[in-house]
């Protein structure tokens, strides 16, 4: 076959990212469940909705939440990959909707590393690479801190080495 296809980037993200993604998703679902419970309590006389409808809603939410929290992180972990060569940054991300992003190192404008509160707990960090295009920031999430730091240092060094205003 003479049809070239894109291979996956070389590196996987940290295994801890699975727990991070699960925790992040679980928090979101908990907020929704709490809201539903609050509504059930406030509407205990059943004037707006019968109690059975409330309970049914809670059960549906709980089932979807459990499915999402168990399946999504694993799926995501299989998809998420990254690679940085001296010429380009290449990532693969998503789970249901997957995306490859490629940007040349010569057009990199900024390299940021960020650790949110939840990422701190799991000792993770993410790296965002921006170019002159607002449509193409490349984000590698779920890296362990050392890898993230190394990636930032590496990219900053190579990006500085190339001249031009990158637009």
């Amino acid at each position: 076959m003479d049809t070239p296809t894109l291979r996956s980037p070389q590196h996987r993200v940290s295994r801890t990212a699975v727990w991070y993604w699960a925790a992040r998703a679980a928090l979101g679902w908990l907020v929704l469940l709490a809201a539903q419970v609050a509504w059930l309590v406030a509407d205990s006389d059943g004037s707006a909705l019968p109690v059975t409808a409330h309970v049914a809603g809670l059960v549906v939410t709980a089932v979807v939440a459990v499915a999402h929290v168990t399946v999504m992180p694993q799926w995501r972990y299989r998809v998420h990959r990254w690679e940085a060569t001296s010429a380009a940054v290449f990532t693969q991300s998503g789970w249901f909707k997957q995306e490859w992003r490629i940007a040349p190192v010569s057009r990199i404008q900024t390299v940021d590393s960020e650790r949110g509160p939840l990422e701190q707990i799991f000792r993770l960090a993410n790296v965002t690479v921006t170019t002159a295009s607002a449509a193409g920031p490349i984000k590698v999430s779920g890296l362990d801190r050392d890898t993230a730091q190394r990636l930032v240092a590496e990219l900053t060094a190579t990006a500085q080495a190339t001249a031009g205003d990158a637009t």
Binding site: L6, F96, K97, Q98, E99, W100, R101, I102, A103, P104, R107, T131, A132, S133, A135, G136, I138, T167
Partner: peptide, 25 residues
């Protein structure tokens, strides 16, 4: 063109399709 984003949803993957975005300033 600066770089490329290639996006494929679950259904697009089944149909072997992709949405190619050319990023530019």
């Amino acid at each position: 063109v600066i770089g490329w984003n290639i996006e494929r949803s679950f259904f697009q993957r089944r149909a072997r399709l992709a949405t190619l975005t050319a990023t530019t300033a």
